[in-house]
Computed example of a mutant assay.
Amino acid sequence: MSELASGEGRGGGAGRKRFLADAAARGLAVDLVERQAAASLEEAAAILGIRPGDIVKSLVVKRKDGSFLFALVPGDRQISWPKLRQLVGVNKLSLPPADVALAATGYERGTITPLGSTTAWPVYADAAVAGRRISVGAGEHGYSAFVDADALVAALGAVVADITEPL
C-alpha cells in the first residue's frame, strides 16, 4: 500500500484517514490521488484527466427538522429541489452554511464525502452517476478518490433516483 493509500501522507490528514477507514470497513476499493488545488470544477477535471460530470459532488442538505442528508450530484448537474423534496417527502430543504456542513459531517466544503462522515446521514445519489468510475471528495483538500459509482452506492445503501437537472 502506498503512503497515500494508507492515509499517512502529508500533514496527518484526519479527514482523509476517516475516509479511508470507512471505505475499508465497507469493503470499498478506492484509489486516492494527491492533486493540486483547482479554481473550478472544470480545472479540477482537467487536472484529474476526466470530464466534469465524472466528479461527483457530495452535497450536505439540511432538512427543516435540523437533520441532514447527502446528495451525490455529478459535477455537470445541479440538485433539482422539487425532485429531491418529493423523493425525501418534505417541503423544505436547503444547503447549510459551510460551518454547519462542517459540524454535520466533520468535513470542510470541497472535501465532503459520506465516507467517514462524523454522522452517517442518509445518502441520495443521482441516477446519472451509475455505471461508471467517478471521483469524489476524500476528506482532505488536495486529494481526490476514484471509485466505482455502483460499488459506492451499494456500500452506502444510497437511494438512487433522478434528483438533478442540467446546469
Rank of each mutant, 00 (worst) to 15 (best):
G12A: 05
V60F: 07
S2E: 04
A37F: 09
P97Y: 08
D76N: 15
I163K: 00
A104P: 04
D22T: 04
K62Y: 11
A127N: 09
G116I: 00
A161L: 07
A5K: 07
L20P: 06
P166W: 11
I50V: 15
V90I: 14
L156F: 04
D31G: 11
S6Y: 03
A37E: 14
A158Y: 08
A14V: 13
W121M: 07
G9C: 14
A161T: 06
T111Y: 03
D54W: 02
E34D: 14
L102N: 09
R18I: 03
A125G: 00
A155T: 05
L41S: 14
F70C: 13
A149W: 00
R85M: 15
G116H: 02
V147K: 02
S40L: 10
T105V: 07
A158S: 13
A103P: 00
A127Q: 15
G66Q: 12
V88C: 10
Q86D: 15
L48I: 10
T164Y: 00
G11V: 04
A161H: 05
D54V: 04
L69K: 07
A145H: 02
I47L: 15
I47Q: 06
I163Y: 02
G139P: 03
V90A: 10
G157F: 09
D148S: 06
A104T: 05
D148E: 06
I79M: 12
L115K: 01
I112T: 02
A38T: 08
L87W: 06
L115F: 01
R109L: 09
E42N: 12
T164R: 03
D99C: 06
F68M: 11
R132A: 01
A151L: 10
R109N: 14
K92C: 11
K17A: 02
V123Y: 07
R35A: 12
A38Q: 03
I163A: 02
A149S: 07
A29W: 04
N91S: 15
R51D: 15
R77Y: 14
V136M: 02
V159D: 10
K64R: 15
E108M: 10
A125S: 08
W81C: 11
G49R: 07
A45D: 01
M1W: 10
G53L: 11
A98Y: 12
A125P: 02
L69G: 06
A120C: 12
D126R: 01
A101F: 01
V30G: 01
P74R: 05
V60R: 08
A128S: 09
A101R: 02
R16A: 01
P122E: 01
L167A: 14
G49M: 05
A125K: 00
R18F: 01
G49Q: 10
I50S: 07
S135Q: 05
Q36N: 12
R10V: 13
S67Y: 07
A25I: 06
A24M: 08
S117A: 12
R35F: 08
A161F: 04
G12P: 07
L41F: 15
L152Y: 08
G110C: 03
D162A: 14
L72T: 04
P122W: 04
S144A: 13
F68T: 04
A39T: 15
V153H: 12
S117K: 00
Q36F: 07
Q36P: 13
V61C: 12
L152M: 08
G142K: 02
A14I: 11
A149I: 03
A39Q: 13
G139C: 05
L20V: 05
A154D: 13
G53M: 09
V33K: 01
